[in-house]
Design a protein around this nucleic acid. Structure first.
Lengths: 346, 346
DNA sequence: TTGAAAGCGCTACCAA
DNA sequence: TTGGTAGCGCTTTCAA
């Protein structure tokens, strides 16, 4: 027996290959392949022998080699968000996972931290890794670099914001409709001085929500008052400050529409102890909305569904669906909990 | 010029390879490889030509082929948690991402949904994908199937709970110390009837926290009263019910220690409107803890750090560190906010 | 500075 | 029911 045969020495730190299994089992490589892939045309006894050797060696099929022959479809999807640890994005991640689970696709995640360069870097690395599709909650303002990938057959879906300089499948929240519903709700409760606190004005979601706000006011026959719109709040502290400024106005608002959950948190801070409290409706639901007092009325939507829908579009493309980019809008729902159902003090 | 040469027809839906680039650039495959990998020994002009063709073709290096030659170290880490959309786990994901970012490792995530079979399946698929390391927040009660991977050189780290039937690097929270500090804090404020509401008793974290609870009581010279310990609450509703039962006791507790954030939420629900309110300290911090009234005192810890530490251990193993499994315990901190600093009604 | 050729571990195809 | 052989796209020698 030649020296290279396996002996009882210390285990080698090299992964066994199909060839190793074949040698030890005394069969051909191809037969091992059949067993590993559960193909037919292998006798019970052969299969058992091979299985035994596989166990013994701790053999595990190498997916890179497999992928190289590319007969076995894609095995992974790439998902780039701003920050996995943010509940909104982790809900999306979850939705993607759920949707692709039965196709046994795995999800590779990456956080761009709102850095366009990082976003691009992640996306390009994912392409090198040959993921079957790309899902992005975009930060950058130019996604034309993805055009060649798209053309080469890697489906791309944009979530929460549309792509820039690129045409691709997109999943959005009904920002305009949600904001409109929130403000109309406040107006319906008698408010005529409704303020809005919003995130950075250059964000797609902010501008859409501001638009919805204005539409509702217009429909309510309420004159435009720019002093009641405070955008540019990107964190809780800024939102708190903006809310305080609104409250300190000579003619303060009787109701508040907050543009996302961070801003709602800031507003809640500013509002604590204030009396009478202005009515409040916030965009985005949050876990403890019903536990703060008064419970916060919100515009809610299914963020897991955003991920699911995006993954669904990707999977359809993977299944060969062609045609122009599609856009899906996920609807919102007003959840009245108390804070938004207060009339103004007459 | 033969027919197979690139013509002005519709772009083929096949990804260009290095060979394609080489052909079009009129150089050898190896030269393209040099350019792509930024190696020396390529003339400026050759490099420029090649770069041009790469751009034109939208060429992207195939990482599977690269990995097959396995000279280029691992490119991915696998992370299996119970549910990515849970803030605790997404914080861990974030920590892992941060730690491995500069090594340009990507993170593949998967949710086990507390299903041991699913957990195993995910872990095994990740091995097939040849991830460089495995990070697990374990659910299953037997991880011996990972022994061969470990032996073959794939580092594995367990987070939040130790592995079963396996010896591997582990990162834990100081559950005992945290629980002890919480209860000691309540005792220090004069409480002698301190109840605990906990998650499923079979969970490692639960039993550790219950242990800390008992230790603190013992140190405070307080006799054991089993009627004040309610474990087995796995969701908010169950925690709410358990809390109500405690409050309805003939001799109710004057203070509450809640074993995790879900349980704290349930307790808050049960407590809303109750007067006098028992003192409360919860394990796990949560975003709105300071916005509910009274603000909730908690045992806090850095969950992102859990992920970072785990990833650090993995990276050290990747760098060749051998030796016995290590265990890291992440410390906790008591954050007094009001709810836990109330004396009992005498 | 450049290129030819071998082979990584697997699957596909064809032969026995 | 089995086995041989040709690659997948790349990196790595070694040679020019």
């Amino acid at each position: 027996m030649p020296f290279t045969e396996l002996g009882p020495g210390p285990k080698p730190l090299v992964r066994p290959t199909m060839a190793d299994v074949a040698r030890l089992a005394g069969v051909s490589l191809k037969t091992v392949s059949r067993v590993v892939n559960g193909e037919d045309n292998v006798s019970q006894s052969t299969a058992r022998t091979v299985q035994g050797v596989i166990q013994e060696l701790g053999y595990r099929r190498n997916d890179h080699a497999r992928a190289l022959r590319q007969e076995t479809g894609p095995r992974m999807l790439g998902l780039v968000t701003k920050d996995v640890s943010n509940p909104f994005y982790s809900a999306i991640t979850r939705g993607v996972e759920e949707e692709v689970r039965e196709r046994s696709l795995l999800v590779v995640t990456g956080s761009s931290d709102e850095d366009a360069a990082r976003e691009r870097e992640l996306l390009e690395v994912l392409c090198e890794r040959r993921v079957g599709g790309l899902l992005v909650v975009p930060t950058g303002s130019d996604h034309s670099f993805l055009a060649s990938e798209l053309a080469l057959g890697t489906p791309v879906a944009f979530i929460d914001r549309p792509p820039c300089n690129l045409s691709a499948d997109t999943i959005l929240i009904d920002n305009v409709g949600g904001a409109q519903a929130a403000v109309a709700h406040l107006v319906a409760h008698g408010h005529r001085r409704v303020a809005m606190v919003g995130d950075l004005p250059e964000l797609f979601t902010t501008s859409e929500r501001v638009r919805g706000y204005h539409m509702a006011l217009r429909e309510g026959g309420i004159a435009h008052d720019e002093s009641l719109v405070r955008v540019g709040c990107h964190d809780i502290a800024e939102a708190e400050a903006a809310t305080r400024q609104l409250l300190a106005l000579p003619h303060p608002p009787t109701a508040l529409f907050t543009g996302n959950n961070r801003i709602t948190y800031g507003a809640l801070r500013a509002l604590s102890g204030v009396s009478p409290r202005p009515a409040l409706v916030g965009f985005d639901d949050f876990e403890l909305a019903s536990l703060v007092s008064p419970p916060v009325s919100v515009i809610s939507y299914d963020s897991v569904e955003l991920g699911r829908q995006a993954a669904r579009l990707i999977c359809e493309r993977l299944d060969g669906v062609t045609g122009p980019p599609r856009q899906i809008v996920v609807s919102t729902e007003l959840v009245p909990r108390g804070s938004g159902e207060v009339p103004p003090p007459y």
